[in-house]
């Protein structure tokens, strides 16, 4: 555990908490993509199957359980409790266009051709692109509430901090995983446009509105 890794995990946790607070306080999931939330739930479940096979640490187990349970809770809030506020019409990204290629890629490029390893690889690839339905929704409506912007910033920062963690681990421990590094770089790049808007607009107190 190094400072980048810890900061990344805390940023990830903060993102999830911000999203739950936004939905709970406003009693609304307007502006949030249910498709992205479904993809994240698939990511956590397929990645953390090792919960039942391998014990790493109390921290590791605790965080995995938190990520799985909060993503299920988010989906429950969006599709059951606050269903009426869910913006179906704008959340029109076809997730099979992400699920199928990620799975096929996981079958082709993986560290070992075993069920757990393929599902882990699939989850890494899927996580890299899971935010696309959310970014698509923001681009369709042309704006995002400030708390949604903070959520996206924290979520994007998490993998960027992991990139620093991987650089650190490569030099400090000689540890590296090319699949995670490659997917993590793609994931971070997808947020760059959003990061720019966040820094130039939201941090200056303006609403995140896309240029027409």
């Amino acid at each position: 555990m190094n400072i980048f890794r810890l900061a990344g995990d805390l940023s990830h946790l903060l993102a999830i908490i911000l999203l739950l607070i936004k939905i709970w306080k406003t009693r609304s999931c307007a502006g949030i993509s249910g498709k992205s939330q479904i993809l994240f739930a698939i990511v956590y479940v397929s990645r953390y199957l090792d919960l039942v096979t391998t014990f790493i640490s109390v921290y590791n187990t605790f965080m995995k359980l938190v990520f799985i349970s909060t993503s299920v809770a988010t989906i429950y809030l969006m599709y059951v409790k606050f269903k009426a506020t869910y913006d179906h019409n704008h959340d029109s990204f076809r997730i099979e266009f992400l699920l199928v290629p990620c799975f096929l890629l996981a079958l082709l490029i993986n560290n070992a051709f075993t069920p757990l390893e393929i599902l882990w690889t699939f989850s890494i690839y899927l996580e890299a692109v899971a935010i696309l339905p959310q970014l698509f929704l923001v681009s369709k409506t042309g704006e995002a509430e400030s708390i949604t912007s903070h959520y996206l910033f924290a979520l994007g920062s998490y993998r960027a901090l992991y990139l620093l963690n991987w650089i650190y681990r490569y030099y400090a421990e000689g540890h590296y995983d090319l699949i995670a590094i490659f997917a993590g770089a793609i994931q971070t790049i997808l947020y760059c446009d959003f990061f720019y808007l966040y820094i130039t607009k939201v941090l200056k107190g303006k609403k995140l509105q896309l240029p027409a």
Binding site: T54, N60, M63, E117, N165, H175, D177
Partner: peptide
């Protein structure tokens, strides 16, 4: 550290 196992990252 064969095939990056066990996965200590989240």
């Amino acid at each position: 550290d064969l095939y990056g196992q066990p996965k200590d990252e989240l």
